[in-house]
Nucleic acid binder design. Structure first.
Lengths: 100, 100
DNA sequence: ATTGATTTGACTAATTTTGTCAAATCACTT
DNA sequence: AAGTGATTTGACAAAATTAGTCAAATCAAT
């Protein structure tokens, strides 16, 4: 399963674009894009959607990839990560039902 | 399923302690404890462990509750929260195997 | 109304995140 | 090996978020 960074890096290469060019399209320093590709930094939601646009990726799928990366990264050093995710699932369902 | 805030609030009441007293035990302003109980703020890991100590709660379980609250809260406004959690699970397993 | 517990909100301090930039490194070509 | 252009790195500053302090407001019970 590819990480968000891997996805946007592969896609850029597939499209034959240089960081410089993506940088111009995104209006974002190429150093940051480089870091996003190597997962040294995390993208904002807006940036994710911009990537989807530029690279013709399904925004929903890209959001899922980005968001799940973030959750997984936060939990990877957590002893009981799997249990936490299970409980979180229950809680999310509850919260969504309750509040929206 | 109880939230972290609910748990620590109930336990405090069960023990018949006032915020002021818990505040002294935790060395933390009672305003903050009040906010933690009502989930207006998020506890740090250290604080969670301190609560477990004070209230005789299983630290592991309390951590799970606290951490899952955080994840659930972050995702509750996310369209595809369930999918994100599923993907995150896969990624966590992978990351734990790979890095530790 | 008074007392004591809890909650609220304004304020400051501390921490984390974000972007900018230039220099360093890398890969390729000649 | 030098030169070219792409990518990566790291130091720095700006911006945003989070944490804690405090006093006043609210609440609950008498």
């Amino acid at each position: 399963m590819k990480s968000f960074g891997e996805i946007i890096k592969e896609k850029r290469e597939e499209k034959g674009l240089f960081l410089r060019q993506v940088s111009a399209l995104m209006e974002l320093d190429q150093a940051i894009i480089s870091k996003l590709e190597r997962q040294e930094r995390k993208a904002s939601r807006e940036q994710v959607l911009k990537f989807a646009e530029i690279y013709d990726l399904n925004p929903k799928d890209l959001i899922i990839s980005w968001r799940s990366d973030k959750v997984a990264y936060e939990l990877m050093n957590e002893e009981n990560a799997e249990q936490i995710l299970k409980v979180a699932e229950t809680k999310v369902k509850y919260l969504k039902k309750k509040i929206g």
